[in-house]
């Protein structure tokens, strides 16, 4: 029973494994470009399991930002996981004791949440362990490969690969922005505000700039284009 649930989780995690392998490759490149070692990059991926939060975190580390900045940036960027955890908490089966909830909390990502929340009926701890294990493996392995490649490859190649993670971010935000006016407006406001702060107020560090721009844009959109369906969170960014 446990084994079959675990294997089902592993199986459902295979596409996530492959996706994470490539996304975290971009993160590994970005991390070494910002002066981190392969081990440090791998440790960040193992302990955080989130792309945007990690990318912002690496930027803050490279800039020598404050701990306050790091805490605020992680809260704002990863806030959506609270909503996913909240939604998932309604779907857990009775065998989810406190220790098991504490373990599964580690692995709430956009993709794992999306996969788990569309399963019919309640979800079991061992299903979650399976899907989280294989997804984490892909995330950390990709980071190590990307970070190692970043240190081995010629400068022209690793420079060009530095755009990969941003390319993925674009691939995540453009398709929903095409069909959802609220997202389109939010994306445009955030980009414009971010560019404005970068050029007009360069003394504001990159971590705080992201927080300010993202909060303003999302709050404006929440007022202008309020959502009726609170469960619609599965189409966010990777990991």
């Amino acid at each position: 029973m446990k084994l079959s649930k675990f294997l089902k989780g592993l199986k459902h995690g295979i596409p996530i494994f492959l996706g994470y392998l490539s996304v975290s490759f971009g993160f590994g490149i970005l991390a070494v470009k910002n002066g981190l070692s392969v081990t440090e990059a791998a440790a960040i991926s193992l302990f955080n399991l989130t792309s945007a939060g990690q990318a912002a975190g690496v930027g803050i580390i490279a800039a020598g930002g404050s701990i306050t900045e790091m805490i605020l940036a992680q809260i704002i960027i990863n806030l959506r996981y609270s909503l996913m955890s909240l939604s998932l908490s309604q779907k857990l089966d009775k065998s989810f004791t406190l220790p098991r909830r504490l373990i599964v909390s580690y692995g709430i990502t956009d993709e794992i949440f999306a996969m788990a929340s569309v399963q019919p009926g309640r979800i079991t701890p061992w299903y979650m362990y399976g899907i989280i294990l294989i997804s984490t493996l892909g995330w950390v392995l990709g980071t190590i490969l990307g970070a190692a490649a970043g240190t081995i490859l010629p400068a022209e190649v690793s420079d060009a690969l530095g755009i990969m993670l941003y390319g993925m971010f674009i691939a995540i935000i453009i398709p929903p922005a095409k069909i959802n006016k609220g997202i389109l407006v939010g994306v445009l406001i955030a980009a414009a505000a971010s560019a404005a702060l970068y050029y007009l107020a360069p003394f504001i560090s990159s971590g705080f700039a992201v927080i300010i721009c993202a909060v303003i844009a999302a709050a404006l959109c929440a007022v202008l284009f309020p959502k009726n369906d609170p469960a619609n969170v599965e189409d966010g960014e990777s990991a």
Binding site: V104, I173, A190, C213, K227, N228, N232
Partner: peptide
């Protein structure tokens, strides 16, 4: 939220804000 909160978020503003936040974060970072 996974261990403590058992109630659903009722604030329409907060739900909408949380819905838009991933996209505005990615855009501002990019």
């Amino acid at each position: 939220p996974l261990t403590l909160v058992r109630k659903k978020i009722r604030s329409r503003f907060l739900n909408s804000f949380l819905y838009y936040i991933p996209y505005t974060v990615l855009s501002a970072m990019t």
